[in-house]
Design a protein around this nucleic acid. Sequence first.
DNA 1: AGACTGACCTAAAAGGTTTTCGCAACGTAG
DNA 2: CTACGTTGCGAAAACCTTTTAGGTCAGTCT
Lengths: 338, 338
Amino acid sequence: MSSQRRRATTITDVATRAGVSIATASKALNGRSQVRAETLQRVLRAAEELGYQPNALAQSLISGQTRTVGLLTSDSVGRFGIPVLLGAEDAFGTGEMAVLLCDARGDAIRERHYVRTLLARRVDGIIVVGESTDPRPSISLDLPVPVVYAYAPSDDPQDVSFVPDDVGGARIAVQHLLTVGRRRIAHITGPTHYRAAQDRAVGTARTLEEAGLALSGGQALFGAWSRRWGRQAAEIVLAGDPETDAVFCGSDQIAAGFVEAVRERGLRVPDDIAVVGYDNWEVLSAETRPPLTTIDMNLEVLGRTAAQHLFAAIDGRAASGVHRMSCSLTIRESTMPQ
Amino acid sequence: MSSQRRRATTITDVATRAGVSIATASKALNGRSQVRAETLQRVLRAAEELGYQPNALAQSLISGQTRTVGLLTSDSVGRFGIPVLLGAEDAFGTGEMAVLLCDARGDAIRERHYVRTLLARRVDGIIVVGESTDPRPSISLDLPVPVVYAYAPSDDPQDVSFVPDDVGGARIAVQHLLTVGRRRIAHITGPTHYRAAQDRAVGTARTLEEAGLALSGGQALFGAWSRRWGRQAAEIVLAGDPETDAVFCGSDQIAAGFVEAVRERGLRVPDDIAVVGYDNWEVLSAETRPPLTTIDMNLEVLGRTAAQHLFAAIDGRAASGVHRMSCSLTIRESTMPQ
DNA sequence: AGACTGACCTAAAAGGTTTTCGCAACGTAG
DNA sequence: CTACGTTGCGAAAACCTTTTAGGTCAGTCT
């Protein structure tokens, strides 16, 4: 390893080499105007030759800004943390911000610990990424830096949260099914106690109601977020109303299971039954046969927005409350024959 | 937002409140021994009451250690970056290290930029996570901090790299197939130009050779890392040698496609054809029907090891070269009927 | 000549912490 | 009473940078 740990060159070295004081060197390096052109050049050259890189720690110590934000996730391995993280990293990366990553793994103790160390490191703000859309405990109480919540909202209405608009997402899905001419639409989704499942069921119910239709089977089928449940639910749906011509599934996993089961019974997707998934989890939605039409929560956008809002909050302007970010429809073959 | 930005309490505040000098306060807070018991208590109480938290920036400025490492990834969204990241975060999290995340998105310019800012922030070390096992350009030349490479090795043999042992992984896969009694084994894998595909093919060939067997079809089938290729290859394999009784696939995606196609032809897995995948990408390997026996590269372990090695390097001990981390076998139903 | 202006530069302080060194007080031994 | 060691504490330097408040000098105006 070529890493002989040598002392980093400081502004003093640069100043000495250029034959000026460190104050002048600082001004030259920062483009302040009280430096003669010739002196400016000397300093810049010296800095170049020495490979000078200002010590961000010292800068932060004076400015009080670290240009660093903490990203606290409950579950970074999860489906949802990653895109949000990427979006945030994207919003920051273009500037000069850096992201300090902390994975609390759903443990409240760990979470508090991380918040403490983030504060000790004097981050300028914190983004909290949840793993479901259910409200989570606020960490913001009496914190000296702004906090925004992404995906999972804070339970404190004073806080700022960005969550996908699941009611709206469901509406888009059902409207699409109506548009392609389906009328007997069933809804298969995750566990009742998930806010996401509730919201999507509500959106589905409302949209059908507005169209003067009822849910095929009378009510939404709550189960698990799994492929297995998708398969099981297929039996239930087909047994309940064999005339069902479309299903809106609360996740791509469920949709994948549903399609599988339905095809094994000899029915065609989308000809006999159209299917819409949720999440646009590409590995699943693009790879099933046929590929799934699905709702995309635009999590990267959500993450980016949350990050941008954090900037705003750092600069002093905050707009508290829960912001619902709209979802979009990705159309593939499971609803539209090619 | 409850974040009225108030000045953080400093050690001066604590010292004042305790009625001692900041030097004494510092010693008390850090458990130095030159403090009377009674004074110690006073200082600790004052710190407690004020909610004092030492400023990590100031500490780092003196100590020269930031207890922060940079994690530079080419592709954090990818299959491979995440587990490595988690493993690293794991190794660090237990201590007091923090991870500064940078996603260069495969862009060399961006990468250099990030290295510069990481150095400006005086990180103690850098982990570079690649997106394939192909060697990548070294960034370590003349860097003042240690660097370790994970998943993708550096092309400079002086550097320290941790990569999965794909030759060994293939060996394990094939040996498992031999153990369950298969003799006509085919190998379907990714593009020729991937080091991973090459290695796995080599491991396959060697192991068969040692068993006195030849590859079904005469040679490995190189294609893409996709499900589609898995399906296509199924046709080729079955057309070439209908007696083939096992297939080792270079990825779970390929395996999933293969299984799908084979089952559509009415063949049973594993009864007629046993299938082993690669990656143990749970969403795929555990959800296909039947679930896939697959090779797990233990990327989290790899990441953790890389991180631990970085510690060692920071503390002065480095062991350069490419370290191949062994893979393991996850047995599911695609090779062993339940 | 003296005062003023403007351009260019520097000394010093500030930011928060740790560490080194010195100082005072006290007790003990001679 | 002196010499000396111990204990407890504080002043100041160090880490590196930016900013403020001057300072010097040359030139210009009265």
